[in-house]
Write a protein that binds this DNA or RNA. Structure first.
Length: 851
RNA sequence: GCCGGAGUGGCGAAACUGGCAGACGCGCUGGACUCAAAAUCCAGUGAGGUUCACCCCUCGUGUCGGUUCGAUUCCGACCUCCGGCACCA
């Protein structure tokens, strides 16, 4: 069948509408106290070079939400920008000799073009890039505020070190314990580094999580576990003097959450970095051998150690410590799985009741002593155990505490420890302070100056930004690249004016991403990071969407920054993101798309073949946003067909159907009421799918069903589908049918507009509306029109479907029960049985229970 | 290893609060249109059984078990895959 309408030509209409949106600055906004605001944000992009379909998916989710809210009358801020500092730019510089800035800016230009061709409704005039001086200046300014408050401090800590390249390696650059460039085994090196005191906010971040009602529970759970508040006890084990009666003085402090198992402690384990380890070395027969073993542990792959993916190993120091409860001497071991960063860097080893200790003890034949018996089970024997009994139980062989249940013994023993001066109750966090120092070029210089006379000096605000110096050669070798630039390092002390040295480390890029969403509110401010009243208007972010891989680090750092900014009086709220959606990963060949894996799918070919609207619609239709998906473009053509179907339906209606009368001027037949029911029920469903559930796939399928319904209706009523010229003898369509068809078509076009905005604007214009879909507003549904007259109620026998009843919607339960029991199919399945109960759920089902 | 998820037709998925498993789409099959093809429009499509046909029956949501009148949904154990584990972003 041919229609007297032009074909759907996505390239032409997309170009037209993108141009018009630019010309009218359609998505640029300013603060307007008279309208409700909506801050819709997607996580900004690392400019890796090319956008891929995984990016597109996330940006579309945000665009659908933003466009829908705009149609509902909100003042919508929907900005975009670039997370532009980071390692890949430096890697590219080393590999190809391209300067990081050139590489980054080229990538941004290319990706911006790709995103603009997708027709996303961004306020591009607010675009930011974190590598620009006017952004990173404010990183430095915020660092200084934190420094003033003691929230930024310097401390020694360990980094990955490649002895061949003589450089620090990121965890990502360590492959199977070896340097990714030269394959040398990676060691550890201690450096003085800057930290942010996020632990100061540990309890606040934990409590704040309670109020995040619109966050996915799984993210909150991950964050709670990450903060890892645990209530336990810090206990002191006195160190027994060595063979020469030398004393090390300080006792070993351990932290335990299971003080109730202390009578089963058969060793004390120290982290290799524990200060006592070095002191023990001196008093051994062969200090060199001892130190060699320590060094071997210390230089183990850090990632492997912190993730427990190493063989548990240790050695006996030959020294003894006294169990503070029993006064029994127990051996002190060094163990590679004990971490200096957590707790006190030392643990008491209770093999019977801790799995890691158990494995360690079995390997080295340390005694396994059961001191907690699980309730109601046969007594455990230490020698016969096959795994640690980690559960609470009743204490045995525990002196005066024997017979007490764990829950009672823990506070009692903690109190006893305090009374005897051997320990105290303590809260520990797994959360560690945030190390922000990076020995790299492509990041924000840390604004600190070291003076031999005045010590550590902050750079005065007036001297900000500390700009990145020009560096031409990137070798990937040596210390911080900035340390190689004498004119950068050499400076004068702001305190005494004498010669001084600049800090040469740069900041972790997570600093950039911890507050960028505030900068969007006031992106061109050159006096402050942002004007607080502007953030007070736009903030907090109403909807934030990004990959699930950011569930912990980025989101917890941003929450931390929000609280710091709140303490600084710059923001009024204490949580930055009211609603969070964590998008599932887009995989290709079973792995996340990334340039380094070489499995990215670039949208450009698809845009050229099918247009932006098809790709947008497809990515929303293929799965719910939270779901992880394996990319396939098998269904892309189906989405293109659907849009073509919409195009033909609406074009034919516009060009060949007679004008439709107003709905209230006609009387509706049953078929008209049925179509209206579908139209209004679709409005109801799609509205809640988009803005309550954010199940955009079912929103699209709802629109597809409406289109199918409209096709059938228009064919039966001879509206638009058949050219009247082809069959002049056919009677003209009924006015009432025209009216309900127009209502359905207009609702369809408006609801499709967040997904396929170019096509929808074009069709909306063709329908005779001159001022766009936002002016038209989001359609409302009429509850009267939705109400069904009759419905099908399933009938089960013992939970198995046996019959269906077509009844009036308000059929009373007695009638439903009677009809169900009398149904012949039901009778066939209840024959010879006694009906014991009939469950009637009005409007849902009837279940006949027969035994 | 630890923490958090996911698993449903040939494929992507739906089932929103424990109530008809498989909406919608892809693919496939058939029909209409066409000289023919493409495009388009219409119809069918979980597996197996039964039947001329309509009906109807059995099985079926990763595996095994449990709770319930009723389980994709709740509980327990397990398998596989994915994300995070603090210097990839």
């Amino acid at each position: 069948m041919t229609y007297p309408v032009r074909d759907y030509d996505p390239q032409a209409i997309e170009k037209k509408w993108q141009q018009r949106w630019r010309d009218t600055r359609a998505f640029e906004v300013s603060e307007d106290p008279d309208r409700p605001k909506f801050y819709c944000l997607v996580m900004f992009a690392y400019p890796s070079g090319h956008a891929h379909v995984g990016h597109v998916r996330n940006y579309m989710i945000g665009d659908v939400v933003a466009r829908t809210r705009r149609m509902r009358g909100y003042n919508v801020l929907h900005p975009f920008g670039w997370d532009a500092f980071g390692l890949p730019a430096e890697n590219a510089a080393i590999k190809h000799g391209t300067h990081p800035e050139r590489w980054t800016l080229d990538n941004i230009a290319h990706m911006k073009g790709q995103l603009q061709r997708l027709g996303i409704s961004y306020a591009w005039e607010r675009e930011i890039a974190t590598c620009r001086r006017d952004y990173y200046k404010w990183n430095q300014w915020l660092f200084l505020r934190m420094f003033e408050r003691g929230l930024a401090y310097r401390q020694r800590s360990t980094v990955n070190w490649c002895s061949s390249c003589e450089t620090v390696l990121a965890n990502e650059q360590v492959v199977d314990g070896a340097c990714w460039r030269c394959d040398t085994a990676v060691g550890a090196r201690d450096l003085n580094q800057w930290f942010f005191r996020i632990t100061h906010y540990a309890d606040a971040l934990l409590q704040g999580a309670e109020g995040l009602e619109q966050w996915p529970e799984q993210v909150l759970t991950m964050q709670r576990n990450w903060i890892g508040r645990s209530h336990g006890a810090r206990l002191r084990f006195a160190v027994v003097p060595g063979e020469q009666q030398e004393s090390v003085g300080d006792p070993i402090e351990v932290f335990t959450t299971r003080i109730d198992t202390i009578y089963g402690a058969t060793a004390v384990l120290l982290a290799p970095e524990h200060p006592l380890a070095d002191r023990f070395a001196a008093s051994t027969a062969d200090p060199q051998a001892f130190r060699a073993r320590l060094d071997r542990f210390r230089s183990l792959d850090r990632t492997a150690r912190t993730t427990g993916q190493i063989e548990k190993e240790g050695f006996d120091t030959g020294r003894r410590a006294l169990n503070p409860f029993t006064a029994e001497p127990v051996p002190i071991w060094i163990a590679n799985f004990v971490l200096a960063e957590y707790g006190t860097g030392a643990i008491m080893s209770v093999p019977a009741h801790d799995q890691r200790d158990f494995e360690f003890a079995r390997k080295y034949d340390l005694p396994v002593r059961v001191v907690v018996q699980p309730a109601g089970e046969p007594p455990l024997q230490g020698d016969a155990l096959e795994a640690a009994a980690a559960a609470h139980g009743v204490l045995v062989d525990s002196g005066p505490f024997s017979g007490q249940p764990s829950a009672q013994a823990i506070p009692a023993m903690t109190q006893a420890a305090e009374e005897r001066g051997i320990g105290r109750g303590e809260v520990q966090f797994r959360l560690r302070d945030w190390g922000i120092s990076r020995q790299r070029y492509w990041g924000t210089p840390i604004p600190i100056i070291y003076c031999d006379d005045c010590g550590t000096q902050p750079v005065p605000d007036a001297d900000l930004p500390v700009e990145l110096p020009a560096v031409e050669q990137f070798t990937g070798r040596g210390d911080s690249p900035l340390a190689e630039v004498p004119e950068f390092v050499a400076t004068t002390c702001p305190g005494c004016g004498g010669p001084a040295r600049r800090e040469t480390d740069t900041m972790d890029t997570f600093v950039d991403s911890s507050w960028y969403f505030y900068r969007y509110c006031d992106p061109h401010n050159d006096e402050r990071p942002f004007d607080p009243p502007k953030v007070a208007y736009w903030g907090p972010i109403d909807f934030y969407s990004g990959g699930i891989e950011h569930a912990i680090l980025h989101l917890i750092y941003s929450r931390f920054f929000c609280r710091v900014l709140n303490d600084l009086g710059l923001v009024e709220h204490d949580e930055p993101f009211t609603r969070l959606l964590t998008q599932g990963m887009v995989l290709r060949n079973g792995a996340v798309m990334s340039k380094s894996r070489g499995n990215v799918v670039d949208p450009d070919d698809m845009l050229a073949t099918f247009g932006a609207d098809t790709l947008r619609l497809y990515e929303m239709f293929v799965a719910p946003p939270e779901r992880e998906i394996e990319w396939t473009d098998a269904g892309l053509e189906g989405s293109f067909r659907f849009l073509g179907r919409v195009w033909r339906l609406v074009s034919a209606f516009c060009e060949t159907a007679p004008p439709a009368p107003a709905l209230d001027a006609v009387s509706l037949e049953a078929a008209d009421r049925a179509l209206r029911r579908r139209t209004h029920d679709t409005i109801r469903r799609v509205t809640s799918d988009i803005d309550v559930r954010i199940h955009l796939n079912t929103a699209v399928s709802g629109l597809m069903e409406l289109v199918n319904e409209l096709y059938g209706f228009c064919a039966r009523e001879r509206i638009g589908v058949d050219s009247p010229a082809a069959d002049a003898s056919a009677p003209p369509p009924r006015p009432a049918a025209l009216a309900v068809a127009r209502e359905g078509i207009e609702a369809l076009v408006l609801m499709l507009s967040p997904f396929a905005p170019h096509l929808a604007e074009e069709l909306w214009e063709a329908l005779g509306h001159g001022d766009g879909v936002v002016a038209a507003g989001w359609p409302d549904y009429n509850p009267e029109a939705v109400r069904a007259e009759e419905m099908v109620v399933p009938v089960q026998v013992n939970g198995r479907l046996r019959a269906r009843l077509t009844v009036a919607v308000d059929t009373p339960r007695e009638t439903l029960e009677k009809m169900a029991v009398e149904h012949p199919h039901v009778g066939a399945h209840t024959a010879g049985k006694r009906i014991t109960k009939v469950i009637v759920v009005p409007r849902r089902l009837v279940n006949v229970v027969a035994r």
